[in-house]
């Protein structure tokens, strides 16, 4: 006790010096952080630049016009057919099926985990759900082809082709289910407890509280989960390459085979391609289109979420 007092009473152990000091550690860290930030932006810009540059070669080809690109419905660049729509529609159809499967299931699972499950059940179930996210997509692809397609054929009959968009879409939905449910659960759990208590104190049942107070309050987080889910579905390649079909096909029948943008890029670039041919540059046009579709879908979801989100705090 005595000793402590003497140390603390010695106010002159450090002379008063208010001059500016060099702090090299601070500036090193600051520059490292700055470089990391710039690097990720730079990489994104570089990818878009490269995409755009090669795609420009494609659009500069005298046979290609924007009218053909957006105005026709057959895609076979080797023989002069440049309609992008068959690839776009199949991407949109498989992704829509995936979201249609994963959003309601994922929301229900996340509501159960955050509002109904006991802490013990939650800590057991959440990791199991997340294991689903660790399964390689090639496994999902064959799961679609060898399990989901026969199942669909059993239910819907012979109209279901061996390769079809429905089977790939459903399995993609299963693939993004853990992502949606896990992120939504985080969003629901982050809703302050006092809001739930406020609802219960009004005589709300658990279901009314979960669905009408907690869920709307968590909407922005759930929206973020949905956006990432859509991006995953639109960009998913292996499942659709294996199960959705090989060859562009302009159809709105989910039981028919149709190649998506990603599946098309994977298949064509897997074959022999020489630089500067129309087949080669066309892939960059498809990739650019894929980029645009993802961007537009993200913007749309963001707008919808902003409109419906509820602000607390």
């Amino acid at each position: 006790m005595k000793q402590e007092n003497t140390i603390l009473e010695n106010k002159n152990f450090r002379p008063l010096d208010l001059k500016k000091k060099m702090r090299p550690g601070e500036s090193v860290i600051q520059s490292l952080l700055f470089i990391s930030g710039v690097l990720s932006v730079f990489i994104t810009v570089a990818i878009v630049y490269e995409l755009g540059k090669e795609a420009l070669l494609f659009f500069n080809n005298p046979d290609v016009t924007l009218a053909k690109f957006f105005g026709t419905t057959r895609w076979q660049p080797g023989i002069g057919l440049f309609g992008i729509w068959p690839l776009v529609t199949s991407t949109l159809i498989t992704s829509a099926i995936a979201i249609f499967v994963s959003l309601p299931l994922g929301l229900a699972a996340s509501l159960f985990l955050s509002e109904y499950a006991s802490p013990k059940a939650r800590s057991a179930l959440k990791p199991i759900l997340e294991i689903l996210a660790g399964i390689p997509t090639v496994v999902y692809g064959y799961f679609a082809l060898l399990f989901m397609t026969p199942l669909l054929q059993k239910i819907f009959g012979e109209g279901v082709q061996v390769y079809n968009m429905a089977s790939a879409g459903i399995v993609m939905g299963i693939m993004i289910l853990p992502l949606i449910s896990s992120m939504s659960e985080d969003a629901l759990s982050a809703v302050p407890r006092v809001l739930r208590e406020g609802a219960y104190a009004m005589g709300a049942t658990k279901f009314e509280t979960s669905l009408q107070v907690v869920l709307p309050a968590a909407l922005s987080g759930i929206g973020a989960a949905l956006i990432i889910g859509i991006s995953r579905a639109v960009g998913e390649t292996m499942i659709v390459a294996i199960a959705a079909g090989a060859g562009p096909n302009f159809t709105f029948d989910p039981f028919k085979a149709a190649e998506t943008m990603t599946g098309h890029i994977a298949r064509i670039s897997g074959g022999d391609l020489s630089y500067n041919t129309i087949d080669y540059t066309s892939l960059f046009a498809v990739a650019l289109m894929l980029f645009l579709v993802t961007l537009v879908l993200n913007l749309i979801s963001q707008t919808i979420i902003n409109r419906f989100r509820q602000r607390y705090e």
Binding site: L195, G198, Y200, A201, M202, G203, A217, R311
Partner: peptide
């Protein structure tokens, strides 16, 4: 709870 209302320490209106 429908017959016994409650007001909390920190205001907690619904969003």
């Amino acid at each position: 709870r429908r017959n016994i209302g409650m007001v909390f320490q920190k205001p907690n209106p619904f969003p």
